[in-house]
């Protein structure tokens, strides 16, 4: 009870303290808002620009989530294929690594030329960075099924499909969920970074464009407000995925067990 109170109250207290010191410094030293805005100025910008900022948040969040969904589907399917056919896995895995190590910033301009639509390009960029952790973790998990259990499935003449469904996929679940949490953060990073490079226009601009645009106008508090919203998106994604992971594993997996220290 005491531990959980400390877990919540200490970070909140530290945060409030930081904001107060920040505001006092900015006000006390009379730092102009275009150099360093205080928390109050940022809050005011959040409220004043709420319609545009919320809309941009929605755009960025929807790209990140769509990319994550694509990454989950493609990562899972490819991992299953890799494990079903070792030859296919060996043939394609190096190219998955190439996709992973090539910086998304470098691919974005090319994607815009190809797709002609900035939003599709953003989606592909975010998908490219989000997809690899799911693929590699799930592949590892599918291959980590207990050897004795595999023997048992052979003894009972299980089909490939049965072995996949009853043994390999459940065994891979903790690995997949670990990959999912990494990919959730990466999909947001991908969506934001790609938007910086690719840019979007008019009513469909996301938070990255909002930051760039505010920068041109020297509306520094608005830049901070957009930044704050990006962080909030990341926290929401991470928190939701952690919750999903906990709910899926709490009955059986070691990672979800309460421990006595």
């Amino acid at each position: 009870m005491k531990a959980s109170f400390a877990r919540w109250s200490y970070p909140v207290l530290a945060g409030v303290l930081l904001l107060v010191v920040w505001q006092l410094l900015v006000s006390g030293l009379a730092v102009p808002p275009y150099v360093m805005p205080g928390p109050l100025a940022i809050g005011r910008a959040l409220i004043d620009e709420r319609a545009a900022l919320l809309h941009s948040t929605w755009i960025t969040m929807s790209i990140a989530l769509a990319a994550l969904c694509l990454a989950v589907v493609s990562g899972l399917l490819l991992a299953v294929l890799f494990v079903q056919s070792r030859a296919l896995g060996q043939a394609l895995f190096p190219y998955a690594v190439v996709m992973q190590v090539t910086p998304v910033v470098a691919i974005a301009p090319l994607l815009i030329i190809w797709t002609g639509d900035a939003h599709v390009a953003l989606l592909i960029c975010a998908w490219l960075v989000a997809f690899f952790p799911i693929l590699s973790n799930t592949t590892l998990g599918l291959r980590s099924a207990d050897a004795h259990l595999l023997s048992l499935f052979r003894l009972y003449r299980a089909t490939r499909w049965q072995t996949l469904w009853y043994l390999q996929l459940p065994a891979a679940t903790p690995y997949f969920l670990g990959g999912l949490r990494i990919s959730g953060g990466l999909s947001l990073v991908g969506a934001v970074v790609a938007e910086f490079v690719a840019g979007t226009g008019g009513t469909r601009s996301g938070l990255a464009s909002r930051i760039l645009d505010a920068g041109y106008r020297l509306a520094i508090p608005e830049m901070f407000a957009a930044l704050l919203l990006i962080s909030a998106c990341g926290l929401v994604i991470f928190g939701s995925l952690s919750l999903i992971s906990h709910l899926a594993l709490r009955r059986w997996h070691e990672s979800a067990m309460p421990r006595e220290l």
Partner: peptide, 28 residues
């Protein structure tokens, strides 16, 4: 009909006892 018991219980940790026991029948 051949069955095998290993040195370790070799149960699926994600399934309840009943679902572990039901596995050979489900596979059939």
């Amino acid at each position: 009909r051949v069955s095998f018991v290993f040195q370790e219980p070799t149960l699926m940790p994600w399934a309840t006892a009943a679902r572990n026991v039901a596995l050979p029948l489900r596979l059939q």
